[in-house]
Design a protein around this nucleic acid. Structure first.
Lengths: 344, 344
DNA sequence: GTGAAAGCGCTAACAC
DNA sequence: GTGTTAGCGCTTTCAC
C-alpha cells in the first residue's frame, strides 16, 4: 500500500539500509543521500513509525496523563509539554484520567503496550497511583504537580505550601480574622500542602498576635476546614456548609480554581457580598479579571510546569546521566478586589 | 525484556499461534485456553500493541485534532470522544493544531505514520485543511464542528446558522436595535455560518418591521460586523473598534466564547454597562452564571458533538457500509441577564 | 483445533 | 561508506 524503504531503495538504486541511514543521520555520501531524498519525495515516502518502534523498542510519542482535561490549569500545562516536546520532534498523547486510579492504570498500560518513549504523569492519587510498572520496564517517567508516594522519579512541583502561606497571610494582613479553607481530597498531595500552608500562616499569626487569637474564635482550625473534590460541585457544597456554622467565617481560602467557582456561587446564593467576605483562589481562573469584584488569586506556573517536565523527560529519554531531581516552581499572588478587606 | 507470546506459549505448552488466538477470539479448546490465560496472568503478559499494529496494519488508537486545547468547547468535545471510544477499547490521542494548518498537516502525517485506526478532525481552516492524504490511504475520518471543503467524509456539525438566528432574534425581541456582530476569521465555516444566521435574523426583522428599519440606522450591515480570530485578544480589539463608530451599537452578538470575554473586557474599560448594552455569546462559558450581570449564551452540544463523531468513526473503522452522513446538532439559547433589554 | 512458517517495515551488527 | 542479513512481537495463512 504505502511506500516503504524498499521502494525508495529500489528507485534510488541503493539498499534499504542506506535509505534508513539517510533518514536517521547515518553516514552516507552526499550524492547518494541526495538521490535517496529525491526518490523519497517523488514517491511520497514517510517512514512507518510503527515498524520503527517495533525495531527500536522506542516510540517517538510521549504520554501525558492528566486528571482533568477540562481544567485550564492542566491544559496550559499540556501546552507547555507540547511546546517543549517539539524540540526533539516528539508527539504528545494526552490521556484524561478523570481523577480515577483505574482509568489511570489502564492508560499506563497503554503507554507500555504502545512502547511510548516516556510518560509525564499528574497523578490521580498520591497513595494509590502506582508507577512501579513503568519503572520496572525502565520507561522514563516524570511526575508533575503531584508527587506519588514511593516512586523514584523526577518530579516537578508547584510550591504549594509557600503559595498558600503567602495567600493566607495576605488575607490576615487585610484584616480578615475567621478564615475558612476549602481544600482538595485527602490523599492528594496538592490538597494537603495547600492546607499546610494555610495552617502555617494562621499559626504564625496567632503566635505573633496572641491577643487576637484569644478572642478571634479560631481555636480549633480543623472546624474551619473542608475537604472537597477539586470540582465546582464540591466547592459549592463546602462553602454552603461553612456558612451554616454557628460562627460564620469572614473569608475563605479555596485550594483550586474550580472549587472557587462553586464557592462564589454559594456565596451569591446566600446573599453574602464580596469583599466584605474575602475570597482567594489558589489557581488562576481565566475570567478572574471579569468577575465583579475581580478575584484575588494565586497564579500557578502551569505552562512552565509542563515545559520543565517535558525537558527533564527528554533528558532521561536521551539517557543523559543525571541524579533524580525535584524541581519546585514558584507561584505569584495576584491581588485584586475580592480581598480588599472586611470593611471595604 | 517484557514477556512475549512465545514466553506464554512455552509456559502453557502450546504454540504462539494458539496464544494469539486466545487473545483475539480464535477457536481454541476451553481447556487449552484456560492454560494459556493462567500462564499469561502469571507472567504478567500484555500483548505488544506496536507489533500487533505492524502486523495488522491497524492500531487501536484514534487521533483527535483540535484547534485549541485551552478552549473549553473543544475539551468538552474531547471528553465526548473519549467516552464513546471506550465502547470499543480505543485510546484517544489528542493533538493541538493551534489553528495552524502546517501544524495540522504534521499531525495528520503522524496519524498516518502511526497507522492510527482513524482520525476525528476539527479543521483549522475550511479552505486549506487537506484531508485527501488520509482518504488516499483509506483512513477513516470524521470532520467535526467545521466542514473542510472538498472532502468526502462524515461530518458532525453544530446548527450554527439557526443558533445565531435565534440568538439575534432574541436580541431584537428584547428591544435592541443596533446590533453589532463579532465573528471569527473569514474562511472558518463556523464564523461564516454564525454571521449568516445573524444577518438572516436582521433581514427578517427589517422585512417585518419596515418602519423600524427606515430609522434604525442599520442600512449597511457590513459596517456592524468585525471579523476577528476567535480569541480573547481579537474580541477585545473588535469591540473597541465597534464602540468607536460614529453610530454606537446598543448590543453585540459575539460568535464564540473567548471573544466574548474580550468584548466584555473592552466594554468594562469603556465604561459601557450591561445590559443597557446587550451582550450575547455564541458558546457557553464555564463562568457564565458568575459574571454580573450573568451572560446570555447559546449553549453548544460540545460533548455530544464529540460523542457522535466518535460513534460514526467507529462504524467506519468496523467497516459498516453506510452512506456518507452529515449530522447536525442543535443549540439551545440560555437566556440570562446580559440581554435584559436596553432600558433594563 | 493446532502448529510451523512467513512476513508486516524498519534498523543494527556485521562483513566488506 | 555500503550492502547483506537477521530479527523486533505479533498475526495469519497453510498444512495437518
Amino acid at each position: 500500500m504505502a511506500t516503504t524503504v524498499q521502494d525508495v531503495a529500489r528507485a534510488a538504486g541503493v539498499s534499504a539500509a542506506t535509505v534508513s541511514r539517510v533518514f536517521n543521520g547515518g553516514r552516507v555520501t552526499a550524492e547518494r543521500a541526495e538521490r535517496v531524498r529525491r526518490a523519497a519525495a517523488e514517491l511520497g515516502f514517510a517512514p512507518n513509525r510503527v515498524a520503527r518502534s517495533l525495531r527500536t523498542q522506542r516510540a517517538s510519542v510521549i504520554g501525558l496523563l492528566i486528571p482533568d482535561i477540562e481544567n485550564p490549569f492542566f491544559t496550559a500545562m499540556a501546552r507547555g509539554v507540547e511546546d517543549a516536546a517539539q524540540q526533539t520532534n516528539l508527539s504528545v498523547v494526552l490521556c484524561n484520567t478523570d481523577e480515577d486510579v483505574d482509568k489511570e492504570r489502564r492508560y499506563l498500560e497503554v503507554a507500555m503496550a504502545e512502547q511510548m518513549a516516556g510518560v509525564i504523569v499528574a497523578a490521580a492519587s498520591r497513595d494509590r497511583t502506582d508507577l512501579s510498572v513503568l519503572e520496572g520496564r525502565r520507561m522514563p517517567v516524570v511526575a508533575v504537580d503531584r508527587r506519588p508516594r514511593g516512586s523514584d522519579v523526577d518530579v516537578v512541583l508547584v510550591d504549594n505550601a509557600r503559595g498558600s502561606e503567602d495567600a493566607t497571610a495576605h488575607l490576615l494582613a487585610r484584616g480578615y480574622r475567621r478564615i475558612a479553607c476549602i481544600t482538595g481530597p485527602r490523599g492528594a498531595s496538592t490538597a494537603e500542602e495547600r492546607l499546610a500552608g494555610y495552617r502555617t500562616a494562621l499559626a504564625d499569626h496567632a503566635r505573633e498576635h496572641p491577643e487576637l487569637a484569644a478572642g478571634g474564635g479560631m481555636e480549633r482550625p480543623d472546624e474551619w476546614t473542608r475537604f472537597a473534590d477539586f470540582r465546582v460541585e464540591g466547592g459549592h457544597k463546602a462553602m454552603t456548609d461553612l456558612l451554616a456554622r454557628p460562627e460564620r467565617p469572614d473569608a475563605v481560602f479555596v485550594a483550586n480554581n474550580l472549587m472557587a467557582v462553586g464557592a462564589l456561587q454559594a456565596l451569591r446564593e446566600a446573599g453574602v457580598s464580596v469583599p466584605g467576605f474575602g475570597v482567594l483562589s489558589f489557581g488562576e481562573v481565566p475570567w478572574a479579571p471579569m468577575v465583579d469584584p475581580s478575584l484575588t488569586t494565586v497564579r500557578l506556573p502551569s505552562y512552565d510546569l509542563g515545559w520543565t517536565a517535558a525537558t527533564l523527560l527528554q533528558d532521561r529519554i536521551a539517557g543523559t546521566p543525571r541524579p533524580l531531581q525535584t524541581v519546585v516552581l514558584r507561584t505569584a499572588l495576584e491581588i485584586r478586589d475580592s480581598t480588599a478587606g472586611p470593611r471595604a
